[in-house]
């Protein structure tokens, strides 16, 4: 067994095992941690097929940002495990039905596949040995697919604006700090020296 194959089986095995643990572990925080392990191994698989840019972006975006926020939310939740298990039997038939339909559909899709003997393998990246795949991706993304790329950007912007509008509320009586005004204050505006006579006091 070559080293590459060995690494593949380790990464793929851990990814599948961790994915199974995501749905089977009792503690939601453990689930998120297993999800992170799954992402990580998937990134390793990307690197193994020569798509190192995608692998790194998977780690930066999903593991480094999305999963952190996810974990944030899950840790803050106050979950009652006993109450969560109560409805288990009630939802079981519906869940099983959905699973069954999905299985049949997958069976229909894969049933029509036929394995051809000598087929050229698909290339994971355009000519990975000549062009680094970061450059290859950039050249595709910013030329042929520039409109789709821009559209994706606009959609994200709309999502940001939506989230801000939903959570923005006017609150009265909140003290705000104006750093510019604080810095612009000088001695003359804040300190006043007075000579006070003995026994006379000051207003």
């Amino acid at each position: 067994m070559s080293l590459e194959l060995f690494v593949f089986y380790v990464l793929a095995g851990v990814a599948v095992g961790a994915a199974a643990m995501v749905i089977s572990s009792r503690n939601p925080v453990h689930s998120v941690l297993f999800l992170i392990l799954t992402f990580f191994n998937a990134a390793g698989l990307f690197v193994l097929i020569g798509a190192e840019f995608l692998g790194m972006v998977l780690v930066v975006v999903y593991v480094g940002a999305v999963a952190v926020l996810f974990m944030f939310v899950v840790m803050m939740l106050d979950i009652n495990f006993v109450r969560m298990r109560e409805g288990m039997l009630q939802y079981l038939p519906v869940g099983a039905l959905v699973g069954l339909i999905l299985l049949v559909e997958l069976g229909l899709v894969f049933g029509t596949w036929a394995l051809v003997e000598d087929v050229t393998p698909a290339f994971p990246a355009p000519a990975p040995d000549q062009v680094p795949n970061t450059r290859a991706l950039g050249q595709l993304l910013y030329t042929d697919y520039i409109y789709l790329f821009q559209a994706a950007g606009v959609i994200l912007l709309v999502a940001i604006i939506g989230a801000i509008t939903l959570t923005l509320r006017e609150r009265k009586g909140v003290l705000r700090q104006d750093i510019g005004r604080q810095v612009a204050r000088d001695r003359a505006a804040t300190v006043e020296l007075r000579k006070v006579k003995v026994g006379s006091g000051i207003q």
């Binding site: 790194m56 780690v59 930066v60 593991v63 480094g64 974990m71 944030f72 840790m75 970061t134």
Partner: peptide, 23 residues
Amino acid sequence: NVGVLYLFAISSLGVYGIIMAGW
């Protein structure tokens, strides 16, 4: 080829040690 991204990814993972310890 993606050394900078690798470092960026690693430094963004650093938060997990802390958040796991805290929780």
